[in-house]
Structures are given as C-alpha cells and as structure tokens.
Design a protein around this nucleic acid. Structure first.
Length: 156
DNA sequence: CGTCTTTGACCCGCGC
DNA sequence: GCGCGGGTCAAAGACG
C-alpha cells in the first residue's frame, strides 16, 4: 500500500471474531433473497451520490439484493460496527461505480467456480470499507458484490 | 508525478 | 504437524 500503517505486522486489530458470518455461503443464501423493486433506496440512505447510483441502472436492468447488517460487540471492544451487504447484480461489468473510488488489492480463483474473485478496498484514507466482487458460477451475467464496513469519507 | 492494477507470495485459521 | 482454503500484502509496471 502507500504509506499507511504497513509497519504493523498485524493490521487486523480485534476484528476477527466474526465466526457466525465468516462463511460466505451463510449470507449467499439467495433463496432468501428479496427482489427489490427499488434497490437504490438502500444506497440513497448511505450514498449521497444518487446520480452515480443511476449508473447502476444503466449497467443492468435486473437487481437482486440481500443485506445482512451485523452489529456485534464481541465483548472485547464492541466499538466497531461491521456491516456486510451482499448484492447480486445483473450486469456485464463488475466495476459498478457507486460514487466511491475502489482500489483492487487482490484477485483469487475460487475452486468451485471458473471465475476469479476480486477484492477491492476504498481508496480514501481512513476508510475501512472492503468490497468483494465475484461472478455467479451458474449465471455469468450476474455479479455478486459484497460490501463490508461503512464509509467514513466526506462527500465523494 | 501520483495513483492504481497486476501478480505471486505470504499469512492465518481450521481440518485432518 | 501438515495441508488446504481463503484473504491480504506488497513490488513493479501501467496509466492519466
């Protein structure tokens, strides 16, 4: 990275105790998905860039989303709120700009899918939001985007 | 010139 | 104790 806290060998503080939802399949249960007529309403509350969000619609027509907000205070230092949001979007591109700058920090091949999984992170210093993009193995035209964390930027 | 992408390697937790 | 899987880091190049 660029001059953040790379000196720290242990960049992960007390953020590991997510044993309940560490399993991706846990919230990847699309059977419980709720087809949203207006999924942008979710972003409207979090993203002040509705115009950018409009780009979402331009990329694809259908949208399915499932969000799981996990606010846990693991009894250690319950001051960090981790929010995980899993989205399944129909689009040919996985780089859906939601108004924030993302910097890709990793790519990995999933053994159960011929498709790679991309890892993004918010470029803004101080923001700890992570984003995970993966194509659906059954429907390559669908993209599974998983947001993790909350943005702490000023207006982007 | 600064930032971001890319890629392989490393690390960590868990299972066997 | 080792192997596996998933996640992250980190150096160099590409890009504007």
């Amino acid at each position: 990275m660029y001059g953040a806290k790379m000196t720290d060998n242990n960049p992960m503080p007390a953020d590991s105790p997510d044993s309940d939802f560490t399993n991706f399949s846990g919230y990847l249960n699309f059977d419980d998905f709720v087809e949203e007529e207006d999924p942008y309403s979710f972003f409207s509350g979090h993203t002040p860039h509705q115009q950018q969000v409009r780009d979402f619609g331009a990329s694809g027509g259908h949208f399915q989303g499932s969000f799981s907000s996990t606010n846990f205070s693991s009894g250690h230092e319950g001051r960090e709120f981790k929010e995980r949001v899993a989205f399944k979007t129909k689009s040919e591109i996985e780089i859906l700009d939601d108004g924030y700058k993302w910097r890709k920090y990793g790519k990995k091949m999933v053994k159960n899918s011929p498709n790679p999984r991309n890892y993004y992170r918010c470029s803004v210093d101080g923001c700890v939001v992570k984003k995970r993009v993966e194509r659906d193995k059954d429907d390559p035209r669908y993209v599974i985007t998983t947001y993790e964390g909350v943005h702490t930027h000023p207006s982007p």
